[in-house]
Design a protein around this nucleic acid. Structure first.
Length: 723
DNA sequence: TTGTTCCAGCTTTTT
DNA sequence: GCTGGAACAA
């Protein structure tokens, strides 16, 4: 195999990164600069040219999707199966290590992975048993607190009793939560990472083994790593400097969930012999889009410094549309998409990006009304559905009787006459004796204090699980799943549900059997573990797509966060308003505001050909009308890159909106933000900002020809133009 | 056990 | 102003 295939398609900077000798390496890869390509080709280079065995290479990503894509591309390039290559998410790899070394990690062999929904339910229940008031101790906050500690590598036992009563109680809950999880053999996502770190830290033999084995370690999206993930990477590469990380400080948008952009800076300290390579040539967007994005991100302090460029030409200007309200905004966007499609564009090349999920509705309504197919990203995923979780809970109980979360989930689902009283009693016994709910249920039955009916029901439940387990013995995985689906009574339960809702749930259960059949057991089973346990872990770690792949050509709707890593020919960045984007909750804090700005940068750099920015002059939010100012990010774009758009045809504006606008103009006796105005010398423009009052009142106007200017209202003879 | 009513809350999300 | 969850009544 000749190496031109590996280094041929690369530019200079990329080639430098790919062919560099083994050493600590930081590749700062701007948006659309071929980051994945560098990783893929680097790994191929090491195997083909450096003669590394695939077996000794580790590549870590954040999402299953990225891991899958990378594996596929490496196999394409090398034309061999990359089976022995370890490519996976941080959580997936951590899970693998814990399965292999359960004993050293002080975990039971049958430990089960909880997803965040499971975790929340466990916490809720825990708060109840500890007699904490839900309203004073919101389970979500507790969950956030616990995960934040774990992300920092802090166990309850590391923490000092604080003077603060709130802190002290939190610590108490954290401690109880850890105990509960240990007792039930439950591991949450943060725990996977923390345990994997402790496994390496506390077991020199294990650490040594993996340090020897992984001669090359690669990390994707390094700016998104949290404290514990980075600590884990450092352990693994300690003294070898064989860490190759790719990331972009300008695209760090997950600080709020523990990602430490600082890890990029620390990397340079911890690996003094590192090399930094910047990838700045962009292969995605037009020159105009890149320049505008560069200008925006330049407002952030403390960047590593990077400026995207392209040789693809300037392209169209960025379009700015000031809508009257959110209805008009949606109408405008949908009309533009229709025009795009009429001119032969694909719907799937068009994306509507927003800051918060709630914004999707107005667009969905307008798309629906015009019969335009669309797809909303986010929302319920397959393995998150209640019916699926119920079925999985039965399977988990079969595998591990002490899985309290699953026990509680299905003890009375479908209803089998075990009421709140009985469940309460079981909980009490479990708490008092520090045993699992399953064990407590047996104790309760033996006490013979229950009514015959309740005792029968409870015995029936225990027997059901035992019988299912017995019958499942020797069956193939999918047969086990089918057995459970058929025998646990869920199908009957959903049959009774009215309308198609129940039917859909039954279909999903059938789909679960199918998923089990397709589950590639061998690939994930280096650990020689039970097939069922692997499948259950798979379900927790890979929650699946929210929707089945539809082959229809659809407009794409998603949040800015979920757009990261994607690209579209036509992009609408909507709701560019203060309070929405940047979010109200971020405006008082420089660090958070900068993260919003990075989000804006990410959003803009999704666009390949055309970018539209829209904002509404009035928006119904939380039931009341608000008149937000245009987003500060709009002001950060030099006017030369912008072009104001108006609807070509007369817009059928909702009457109320026009009236509201007229009323507000009269009320303030002044100009409104976004108001189109004319000036004798400067021509036509749009009001961006106002300040002062009376004779001191000034307005900032973005003129089409001459750009942004501040004018004293008293002197500038402005003409109000109808927009 | 189900249906109703009331009430808080209201960024972003993968694993 | 809407939504989801919890508390309550029947």
């Amino acid at each position: 195999m000749d190496i031109t295939k590996i280094i041929g398609p690369l530019n200079d900077a990329q080639r430098q990164a790919v062919t560099a000798p083994s050493q600590a390496m930081l590749v700062l890869a701007g948006a659309g600069s071929g980051k994945t390509r560098v990783l893929v080709h680097r790994i191929a280079w090491q195997i083909q040219v450096e003669g590394e065995s695939a077996h000794s290479i580790l590549a870590v990503t954040f999402t299953n999707k990225a891991a899958k894509e990378m594996r596929g591309r490496i196999e394409d390039l090398l034309k061999v199966s990359a089976q022995t290559l370890w490519i996976g998410t941080f959580h997936g790899i951590a899970h693998r290590l814990l399965r292999r070394h359960a004993k050293e990690a002080k975990l039971p062999e049958t430990f089960q992975v909880m997803d965040s929904g499971d975790q929340l339910r466990v916490i809720k229940r825990l708060l109840n048993t500890l007699n904490f008031d839900d309203s004073k101790w919101p389970p979500r906050e507790v969950q956030w607190y616990i995960n934040a500690q774990k992300d920092e590598g802090i166990r309850a036992r590391h923490m000092v009793e604080a003077a603060d009563i709130h802190q002290r109680q939190m610590l108490r809950i954290y401690r109880a939560y850890e105990e509960l999880c240990d007792r039930s053999g439950l591991v949450d996502f943060a725990e996977l990472l923390l345990r994997a770190h402790e496994l390496l830290r506390d077991n020199p033999a294990v650490l040594d083994f993996y340090q020897q084995r992984f001669r090359q370690v690669h990390v994707d999206e390094f700016q998104d790593t949290n404290t514990i993930q980075y600590a884990w990477l450092r352990l693994l590469t300690d003294g070898k400097d064989n860490l190759f990380v790719v990331g972009d400080d300008d695209q760090s948008i997950y600080g709020w969930r523990g990602a430490k952009i600082e890890n990029i800076y620390s990397f340079q300290k911890h690996y003094p012999n590192h090399q930094v390579i910047k990838l700045e040539q962009n292969y995605r967007s037009t020159g105009t889009i890149l320049k505008a994005a560069n200008k925006i991100i330049a407002n952030n302090a403390g960047r590593m410094g990077k400026e995207l460029w392209t040789d693809a030409g300037e392209g169209d200007k960025i379009s700015l549309y000031a809508a009257f309200n959110e209805q008009d905004e949606a109408y405008f966007v949908v009309e533009r998409i229709r025009a795009w499609v009429n001119e032969g564009g694909l719907r799937s090349d068009a994306a509507i990006l927003y800051r918060s999920n709630a914004q999707s509705r107005q667009f969905e309504e307008k798309l629906m009304a015009t019969g335009t197919p669309y797809r909303v990203y986010g929302g319920l995923r397959f393995f998150d559905r209640a019916e699926i979780k119920n079925a999985l809970a039965y399977l988990r109980l079969m595998s591990n009787r002490h899985d309290d979360a699953s026990f509680e989930r299905v003890i009375n689902t479908p209803t089998r006459g075990i009421g709140a009283k009985a469940i309460d009693d079981i909980r009490c016994i479990a708490r008092d004796q520090s045993i699992s709910l399953w064990a407590a249920a047996i104790v309760l039955i033996n006490q013979r204090t229950m009514t015959a009916r309740a005792a029968n029901a409870l015995t029936g439940f225990l027997e059901l699980i035992k019988n299912l387990d017995k019958q499942a013995e020797g069956l193939a995985l999918y047969e086990k799943v089918r057995l459970v689906v058929e025998k646990c009574g869920l199908v009957e339960l959903y049959q009774k549900e009215k309308m198609d809702k129940g039917e859909e749930k039954i279909e999903n259960l059938e789909e679960l059997v199918n998923a089990a059949r397709l589950f590639d057991f061998d690939q994930e089973n280096e650990e020689n573990l039970g097939e069922l346990d692997m499948f259950l872990a798979h379900a927790a770690l890979e929650s699946g797509d929210s929707q089945a792949d539809d082959f229809e050509d659809c407009v794409q709707l998603m949040t800015l966060h979920s757009a990261k890593g994607l690209e579209f020919k036509l992009v609408f960045l909507v709701g560019m308003e203060e309070g929405l984007f940047p979010s109200q909750q971020s405006v008082d804090d420089v660090a958070r505001l900068e993260e919003e700005r990075r989000l804006c940068y990410v959003g803009m750099t999704r666009a390949m050909k055309q970018l539209y920015l829209t904002y509404a002059e009035s928006r119904r939010l939380y039931g009341r009308e608000s008149y937000p100012r245009p987003s500060r990010f709009l002001r950060e774009i030099p006017a030369e890159f912008l072009q104001e758009v108006r609807m070509r045809a007369t817009v059928s504006r909702p009457v109320t909106a026009v009236q509201a606008k007229a009323a507000s103009l009269q009320a303030t006796g002044s100009y409104k933000l976004g108001q189109r105005v004319g000036h004798a010398k400067f021509g036509e423009g749009v009001v961006l900002q106002m300040e002062g009052s009376g004779a001191q009142e000034r307005v900032q106007i973005n003129f089409k020809q001459v750009g942004v200017k501040w004018l004293m209202l008293a002197y500038a003879k402005l003409e109000v133009l109808q927009g």
